[in-house]
């Protein structure tokens, strides 16, 4: 027993040393820990699980998904930079969370503390109503909201989140006043919609994919229609310039070397390029995006930051 223990201990120590001297060629030399800063079952978890099986097939190592929930992601992100920077520890990131949260108060991290290496998909914002709702179109909803100010209630996931910002921005663009009710996660927000506790939901295209005939999407916030919902118009088509959603990607601790960051970015891109992966994602209602490590990602992040900060300021979520 003791002997075995000793060998195992030496093995672990050796692995530790290997980790320290890791370079991009050998990476990944062991399983990669993929921390999701939320609980299981949400969009972040499900897409990580989708990636999990492809990662193993392509790169021969396990991608181990674990959860570090708390504070709407803040618990995980505030600890990102204390994790080992050898590429074997990565963490999921979500926009607008990482931009809005640190500006709402001291949540233990700043947006700049997060080293993003890839943004791989987003869930476009969408207005969802029950299938038997009287609101048949976006225009119906706007008419109702104009006739009964504040009385139209939207469920959504959290405050200062993609759903909440979408509600605020759309209210401004459509010149209406509605009420936003924050729930804990998309699941609870959908439950409230299905149970007719609210008039409509600010959700994502994924809600439509999951609930099928039970619900109707009134509009989606994409450049073009989602392939899974060819009949649902975009906000743009209806005259509202709104392309938004919750964007998800992967970040590494700031101590991770440059070449490993690039290699990781390439690996995620490779999974994203796999037609089988894309099919799974699109059927689930997700929308693909590919922004890899480097100047592109920096520019994109800067542009999003500007947008979100402006929106959150005008909504009074941040000062």
């Amino acid at each position: 027993m003791i002997r075995k223990t000793l060998f195992a201990a030496i093995g672990v120590a050796a692995l530790g040393l290997a980790g320290m001297s890791a370079n991009a060629e050998e990476f990944p030399s062991k399983s990669v820990d993929y921390v999701i800063p939320f609980g299981p079952g949400g969009e972040s978890d499900i897409t990580a699980r989708f990636q999990q099986s492809f990662f193993k097939d392509k790169f021969g190592q396990e991608l181990v998904v674990s959860y570090k929930p708390g504070g709407g992601g803040a618990v995980g992100w505030s600890q990102l930079n204390s994790m080992a920077g050898d590429g074997h520890s990565i963490m999921g990131i979500n926009l607008p969370h990482i931009i809005v949260k640190p500006r709402q108060g001291d949540v233990g991290f700043q947006t700049d503390d997060i080293t993003a290496v890839y943004m791989f998909h987003y869930t476009p914002d969408a207005i969802v109503v029950n299938a038997d709702s009287d609101l048949k179109s976006l225009q119906d909803l706007i008419d109702y909201a104009k006739a009964y100010p504040k009385q139209l209630t939207f469920s959504g996931s959290g405050k200062g989140t993609a759903n909440h910002l979408a509600q605020i921005i759309f209210d401004q663009k459509a010149g209406i006043e509605t009420t936003y009710v924050a729930f804990k996660g998309t699941g609870a927000s959908v439950t409230a919609l299905l149970g007719n506790q609210v008039s409509a939901q600010w959700g994502y295209t994924t809600v439509g994919a999951k609930q099928g005939d039970k619900v109707r999407l009134l509009a989606v916030a994409m450049e073009e229609r989602h392939p899974a919902f060819p009949d649902v118009p975009t906000f743009k088509e209806l005259g509202f310039d709104m392309v938004s959603g919750a964007y998800r990607g992967i970040a590494v601790p700031s101590s991770t070397p440059e070449d490993i960051r690039q290699k990781l970015s390439g690996m995620i891109a490779e999974i994203n390029a796999d037609p089988a992966f894309q099919k799974q994602m699109l059927e689930g209602g997700f929308a693909m995006m590919d922004i890899g490590y480097g100047a592109d990602l920096d520019a994109w992040m800067a542009a999003r930051t500007e947008d979100y900060v402006a929106a959150a300021k005008s909504a009074g979520i941040i000062d």
Binding site: G39, P40, G41, D45, I46, F50, T191, L194, K210, Q211
Partner: peptide, 24 residues
């Protein structure tokens, strides 16, 4: 409904989606 009743159900739901089983 495709809505997890308890936290372990949430994990199982995710695993099912990966399997290609659509709950709901």
């Amino acid at each position: 409904l495709g809505i997890p009743g308890t936290p372990p159900d949430a994990v199982i739901l995710g695993a099912l989606l990966v399997q290609g089983v659509k709950t709901g």
